[in-house]
Design a protein around this nucleic acid. Structure first.
Lengths: 231, 231, 231, 231
DNA sequence: GATGAATGAGGATTCATTCAT
DNA sequence: CATGAATGAATCCTCATTCAT
């Protein structure tokens, strides 16, 4: 947590000062910056554009953020949601089957993160991880690791309760994470992952993906109809 | 193919002016450019750096590419592999089970594309799609759509042969594509998808993913051990 | 005096508008400004810093001074001491030897001007004369010319009274002025005139300088010891 | 010498590279920069103006100097003349009286330094010492200290040969340095040290100053004419 | 063809100045 | 009166692009 603290405390300290100011400005700037950084990347985004979209002038932005880089860091900090703690609590309290829990988890992730502007953060990190290694490390620590840990605990619960077969947990986790990433990129990268001409309904996708994760696509052996083969 | 033609023909026409085509156009420049664009993004990459890494001077780069943007387009064109036609042919000739075919397809994709530098192209497109809509469209047409179509045909074959259950083909396709994207990002975006401290073996991952796609993770009903539940 | 009037009357007139004059205009601002202008130069000094050092906000500074440049002019006006008139009166009343008078004059200059913050004004004018020709002219008229005139009158008195030999008065004056400037720069320009590692006692320096001006450094002829020469 | 080395070696290394380039550029830029820095100070000088005066564009300046600060440092380094070694050699070889030597020294300083553009460096250091402490330290080490040391040796020689009376060497040195500084400021600071309306002939000034240093201004006692007093 | 010096439009950042509160 | 948030002109610096050699 040392890294996370350094970033977040800094912006917390700033926030204290800010709240005494026009108090809306920094948030509007961060909003605008998130959109533009996600849309065009860090380097291709002009601070003046961010300011304009937030309805203020170039100079005002620098009143709240020391530099474009600091703005970027603040965008990342601000948009790292604290949902993980929430989900962990829900996990502890959950009473139903692990299958239900997994579905609940993926769907609520979509509602609370995937479907929101905040999901752009993931695409942003994909693009800029190499240019901002310290932020990437921070993001990994705050988002990636706890997220993976939670999913792993869910699978472990399923195995413990006899719902899931024994499995290599790491790769099982990826089978949940990969679709999330896929959804984000489908949302933010216009047709580079999913063809434009194909409708893509996230809820349906999650449901289908869950079905596949749980039961696979193969025909159960007893149902195999011989003779239906191609030849 | 009209869009694809426009890009490739343009660069072909330009090359024609300068006598030889790919022969004369230093592949080193395209190589260096791919690496750097993938690593830092389009805007954050300096042409001088590309030239330096290719061992030539800044001026030389502009002998072969009219502009940084043309260089980018050429990088995309050059790295769009012709594997799709290959795979389509192999699909037509394939005699084994569709399960085998799917495994063969994913593994050979990893060997021929995923594991190579060329896989950076996908990350590149994710990052730059919004900044280069025409290139994104071109990429979609040349890579995404044919790729999806191929996978869809495989699934269709499986259904036709009674190996796979009925399914929504679109979402089934994503269950193959998402892991590929995931692999690429794991390779190119340091820890933003997979925690740094977790080993990730692509071949194993593909195998595990295939198993999940085919058979799911749930315990088969007859094997469910009641009473083993947590509560 | 026309130029001098223009500056001071202007600021007087402005002040009149705002009722009270120097009383209301925070001397703290002028104090802070003098220090910072002397230390860092006009351009490198930020008004915000001046305001901060004076304990007020940036906006307040502009209540009292129309612009940074006006602040600068006010600093010069404010710090031009009225000592000249004083010294002229003392000159008229002086009864002792001219040698004594010269010593008195240099020492009291050091006490009343050289040793105080106000001496920074001279360094300031040296640095900024080219950037503010009209202020430089004003300073020349108010400080330099009367100062030179006074010293010249002292020398004239010495010649008239037979204490000093005939001399070119202009250059004689410089032999008094140069050490004063030297003292100021030694005080304000860290090591650019006097090495840091050499102690420099202004009173002693003035005494030594006076001795040199009056009697020179050469051995009186009758005291020359031939044969003591190096060769 | 460690500090001096760091600065000068750096610019020497740069020079090596430069000479292979248009080879005249850097010198022209340094010339222009010296003039403008002396005239307006560091902060008030725009790099574009420097470039324009050197007949090149803004960008070209940054081809040769990493930043405005580096340009400033290079200006200082470049203009620190190696005359001190020369003068030291001449001192060792000098055969005449120390009085002659002192005169020779001051006059040749004026010819070789004071009268040239390089003398602006001193004014520059006066103005910017506080803003560039490391450069000021470098300047002190390379110019001020060796200069003072040389003059001190001259006076020591005069004492040893019986030409000069015993004296406090430090203050004696200042009686030579102060006029030099005075001359420089008279040259570079339009009327802030010497009134504009007074002719100032450097050679004459040096001669007069020498006379004063050596013999003072007082009437020799035997020549004092009583009764000539004012009253 | 190849080079690298030169260019200048473009973008980040600063800071004097204004003005609503 | 005092404040400090907001402004935008001014300036440093970068880097894609050109071109003479």
């Amino acid at each position: 947590m040392p890294i996370s603290k350094s970033f977040c405390e800094k912006s917390a300290a700033l926030s204290a000062k800010r709240e005494r100011r026009k108090e809306a400005r920094p948030g509007e700037l961060l909003d605008a910056a998130l959109d533009l950084f996600v849309e065009k990347g860090f380097a291709a985004t002009r601070v003046e554009e961010v300011a304009a979209r937030a309805g203020v002038s170039k100079g005002t932005l620098f009143l709240y953020f020391q530099s474009k880089e600091e703005l970027f860091k603040a965008v990342v900090c601000e948009n790292i949601s604290g949902h993980l703690k929430e989900w962990n609590d829900e996990f502890e309290a959950f009473e139903g089957s692990t299958t239900e829990m997994l579905g609940y988890c993926m769907n609520s992730w979509w509602e609370r993160v995937g479907a929101t502007r905040a999901s752009g953060l993931n695409k942003l990190m994909v693009s800029e991880a190499k240019n901002f290694p310290d932020i990437a490390a921070f993001y990994q620590q705050e988002v990636i690791r706890p997220g993976h840990a939670l999913i792993r605990r869910i699978f472990q619960r399923g195995i413990d309760r006899g719902e899931f077969r024994q499995m290599d947990l790491d790769y099982a986790v990826y089978s949940v994470v990969a679709p999330m990433i896929f959804l984000i990129l489908a949302k933010h990268s216009m047709g580079v992952c999913v063809p434009d001409n194909v409708a893509m309904d996230p809820e349906k996708y999650i449901a289908a993906q869950l079905r596949i994760i749980l039961h696979g696509l193969s025909q159960p052996p007893e149902a195999q109809r011989p003779g239906k083969a191609k030849a």
